[in-house]
Computed example of a mutant assay.
Amino acid sequence: MSPLSALKISLPLAALLLPLSSTLASPPLVDPPAVPIAYSLEEFRSAVRSGGPGKDGIPAIDNPRFQSAEQADGFLDDEDIVIGIYRHGEARAYPQRILVWHEIVNDEFAGEPVSITYCPLTGTALGFERGDTELGVSGKLVNSNLVMYDRATDSEWPQILGVAIDGPLSGKGLEEFRVFWTTWGQWKARHPDTEVLTDQTGYVRNYRRDPYGSYRPLRGYYHPDSRRLFPVMTDDERYPPKSMVLGVRTADGAIAIDKDALREEEVVDVSLNGSQYTVVHDPDLDTGWVFHNPDDIEIEASNLTFNAEGVSGSGLENLEAVNAFEAMWFAWAAFYPETAVYEGGEAL
C-alpha cells in the first residue's frame, strides 16, 4: 500500500489493521548468521543513508502476476536481463526492467512464501524465505545497497548482508536461496516452460525505461567506470567500481570470483581460511555454481551436465551447495573489506 493510499484509511479501520499486522511471525532466521560481518551493528546503523524515497516510496510487488514464455517474448528481447528462479519444480523469470521500479517481489513457490529482491545501485539479486511476513523497501541504503524491512517486526536488513542491523531481530540472518542473474534468451532456453512476471503490477510505471541507465549496452549508472551515488564504509579501487563479480561468502570468509577467469578455467578451486570450495562455470546461464569441497575432490568440467535441476557430475554428489550472486565490485568490497579475489591462478 502506498503512503497516499494509507492516508485514505479511516482511523477506526487503521486501528483494526494494526493488531493483524502485529500477529505476523518473523521470517525464518539463521542464528548466528552464516556470513562474515565486517563491522559492528552500530557501525552499520551509523552508515545508513536515505535513498530519497521514504518507506514504501518504492513499492514492493505483493500480488505478482505471470505469463507464459511465449507471451513474454512480446515484451522481452533475448538480451534483456532477468532474475531467474527454479524452486520446487517451478521456474520463473523476473525482468530487471520491472524490478528496477519495485526492488522486491513477495511471491510463493509451491505454497512457500519467498521474497525476490533486487538492488539496482549494487546490481545484486537475492532470494529470501519470508515465512508469514513480507519484505518491503525501507527507503534507506547502506553501502549504496537496499535496506529491506520485514513487516512483522520492522527490523531492517541490508540485502547483501542478509543480517538485521536494526530492530528486534538485530544480529540474526535470513534464510537465502539461489537466484540467477542471466538473460531472457538464456533462461528460456534452460526453462522453456518458465513463467514470467508481467507488467500488470497495480502501479503505473514505464517498464520500458530504466531510470538508471542501460545494460544493453552498458551505459549510465551501470557503466563499469561510472561513479557511485552514495558513500561506502570501505573504498577498494582494485577494480572499476561497477565491475561485476561473482560473490561467495560463508562463515569461513568472502571471495570475489572474476567472471572472465571463471569462464576461461570452467572449474575453479579456492580456499577460504583453510576451507576448500569449488566453483564451476555454467556456460548456458553464464554464472557459477559453488560447492563446499572439504575433501578437495577433483571436479572435471568435461564430466558436468547442466539442466533444469542445476548441475550434476562425478564428484558433486555429496558436496554441499553454497549460495553465490553477482554484485558490483564496489559494493561487495564495501560489505566484505577483507574479501579475497580470484582472477586466475590463486586467490589474492
Results as ranks from 00 to 15, higher is better:
K8Y: 05
E42C: 02
L121V: 08
I81N: 12
Q67Y: 02
H102W: 08
P19Y: 12
C119V: 12
G89T: 01
Y86D: 11
L135N: 03
E79H: 12
A38D: 03
I9V: 13
G52K: 12
T124Y: 06
F109Q: 03
L7Y: 07
A15V: 02
D31C: 04
D132C: 03
F128R: 04
N106A: 04
A47V: 11
S46M: 09
P36F: 09
D73H: 10
A72H: 04
S46E: 15
P59M: 09
S2F: 05
S138P: 00
L24D: 09
D62N: 14
P113L: 11
P27M: 12
A60V: 00
I98G: 05
R49D: 07
P19T: 03
A125T: 06
E112F: 07
D78A: 15
R97Y: 06
C119N: 05
L17S: 07
W101Q: 07
A69V: 14
D77Y: 13
R87K: 14
A14I: 02
L7W: 09
R97T: 12
D77L: 15
V82G: 06
E103T: 05
P95K: 10
I116V: 15
A93G: 13
S2K: 08
A125Q: 08
N106P: 01
P27F: 10
T122I: 11
L11F: 09
E79A: 14
D56E: 15
F75G: 01
A110G: 00
P64S: 02
R65W: 01
G131T: 04
